[in-house]
Design a protein around this nucleic acid. Sequence first.
DNA 1: GTAATTTGCCTAAAGCTTGTAGGCAAATCA
DNA 2: TGATTTGCCTACAAGCTTTAGGCAAATTAC
Lengths: 189, 189
Amino acid sequence: MARVGLTTDRLVRAGAELADEVGFEQVTVSALARRFDVKVASLYSHVKNSQDLKTRLALLALEELAVQAADAVAGRSGKEALAALGNVYRDYAHEHPGRYAAAQLRLDPEAAAASAGRRHSQMTRAILRGYDLPEPDQTHAVRLLGSVFHGYITLEMGGGFSHSAPDTQETWDRTLDALDALLRNWPTP
Amino acid sequence: MARVGLTTDRLVRAGAELADEVGFEQVTVSALARRFDVKVASLYSHVKNSQDLKTRLALLALEELAVQAADAVAGRSGKEALAALGNVYRDYAHEHPGRYAAAQLRLDPEAAAASAGRRHSQMTRAILRGYDLPEPDQTHAVRLLGSVFHGYITLEMGGGFSHSAPDTQETWDRTLDALDALLRNWPTP
DNA sequence: GTAATTTGCCTAAAGCTTGTAGGCAAATCA
DNA sequence: TGATTTGCCTACAAGCTTTAGGCAAATTAC
């Protein structure tokens, strides 16, 4: 019996490809075994269970996103930085829909702590330096930006904006304009 | 063999309760049969298949949400209307997490057309009457509001805002303030 | 009120998924 | 070359989905 050379890492990377091809929901231990032409039980030496596999996919996606986000934000500020960060998320979701879905998986506290999650919020916080918001408004703004980016991408990819003009790219551009304007004129009650 | 009196409607309503209790993902034909103390195959006379059941749950949730939204918006305008609409979505998600998740199900075109989806976007559009935006900005704003509401609720419920002060109610209030300010000073390039 | 028809829930069975236990052979190490 | 570790295997149990066909309860007709 020839050995295929399975490793946790190869499984996770193949799982990510599979997710992008057929959707995160369809990533199963069975499907992954099929892809390596190997029996299902063989995977359980490398991955604890289905949940473990999905968590690893989420961590991979969060990590990839954090790297790209850091690169995009570096050396930019103000609206340029804002747009760069938003585009990273949106482009990643379009290019890797399965991975992006994986990144939304609800992680248990330990996994969340070990994830790139904190780097993401700090990236957003870094952008806000250009807008000079005092605390706690800065935290509110971080959450608002996260909401808009994530909500927009989810609705756009879910077809929520289909069936109506104008096209979504224009709305995205105007959304970034709107966020920039909002941050520059942040309301203080 | 006593008959339980299954109907499609009772199944869907029970499915909605089940979804709120254990999560939309855990709503299965099996679990529903168990809840009625009936054999699994019996459900297939009332529901085409698992997908059909989930679609019906989504339509129920969209309908309930549309009714509540219409009621909340009626007789209000401006920021009051904006907050009322946002609160309907957010409160519904907190009270009926499973149903809210169901409402996010991607529907096939026919189901989408028969859904309350259009009423939702028209409700948002109605709110914008108080802000006097010209087309196509109005459409952009509809999409932006949808993104913020949906994104915020998803992140809040997914625990994305946990582990950090201040509390989410405050951020929500400030988010509504920010959206109101943004719509009153909508940037035109 | 009884007979005929419809309808509701049943048993049975196949196929797919997750997960565990134990085994044999290939790779690695002494 | 022999001993040990490791990788993928077979076998099996249990849960979910879906279809086919059957019997009995409810409904309708006479």
